[in-house]
């Protein structure tokens, strides 16, 4: 690698706004992460509830969404929801695609959040639920006050794994025409095939830079929040 190659590589950053593309991924991850956490919690509550139909609905959702490739869900969100059914989440063309991508990422990862939380529920001894029932709490208060708080704290590590997967899967939003990092990488490779290797390494390094802190943070958090028994 001589100076010429390096200069060529650096000139890429004048031509293309790489940080802006990564910022889109971070935004996708942020919004889809929060929504998936909410939807996943609802699903997990359904799956542990005493009502058979709710349990059935929850497990059917997880089975369907978890076993469908994300790319297909993403394409469905754009071509199916928007293209065919006319679901519009914003009058602005770009924002609409962004939001549809968030929907796709959310419904997919909610299934994994649900399963991570369920593994957390399994860390809560059955005696905790019995004690809650014994002092007169019915299912919902017992779940909200006793089971779920401990389940969340017991599932920080698996939830972190879901967040890491979500961060990387946010690149699939390219299938929904969202201008994010992987899409920009393809454009850059198309226009600057002379520095393909450097372009690839740039984006690989970018994701490592985002994902490594998430892993470190969730590991530290899971230690701190672990319920002492």
């Amino acid at each position: 690698m001589d100076d010429g190659y390096f200069q060529q590589f650096l000139s890429l950053f004048d031509e293309f706004d790489v940080p802006a593309a990564f910022w889109v991924n971070i935004q996708l991850t942020f919004f889809a992460g929060i929504l998936a956490l909410i939807l996943g919690t609802v699903l997990a509550t359904m799956r542990i509830s005493p009502v058979p139909s709710l349990r059935w609905a929850g497990s059917t959702y997880v089975t369907l969404l978890r076993n469908t490739p994300l790319t297909i869900i993403m394409v469905f969100c754009v071509l199916g929801l928007w293209g065919q059914l006319g679901v519009t989440l914003s009058p602005d063309f770009q924002t609409n695609f962004f939001r549809l991508a968030v929907v796709g990422l959310t419904v997919y990862h909610a299934a994994f959040v649900c399963e991570a939380l369920r593994s957390g529920v399994n860390t809560v001894p059955v005696g905790q639920a019995e004690a809650a029932r014994a002092i007169g709490l019915s299912f919902w208060p017992a779940a909200r006050l006793i089971i779920l708080p401990q389940a969340f704290r017991g599932s920080v590590a698996p939830l972190g794994n879901v967040l890491i997967a979500l961060t990387k899967n946010s690149t699939v939003a390219a299938a929904a025409s969202v201008a994010e990092a992987s899409g920009l990488m393809r454009t850059m490779i198309e226009f600057r095939p002379d520095v393909i290797l450097a372009i690839f390494l740039t984006f690989a390094f970018g994701f490592v830079l985002i994902v490594v802190p998430i892993g470190l943070a969730t590991t530290a958090l899971s230690r701190r929040l672990a319920v002492a028994r």
């Binding site: 004690a131 019915s138 006793i146």
Partner: peptide, 24 residues
Amino acid sequence: EGRALARLRADVGMVFQSFNLFAH
């Protein structure tokens, strides 16, 4: 089952072998 059972359980104190205090 239901609310009536929850109310009744509040009238019956239970102490377990493994304590089962709410750990958090």
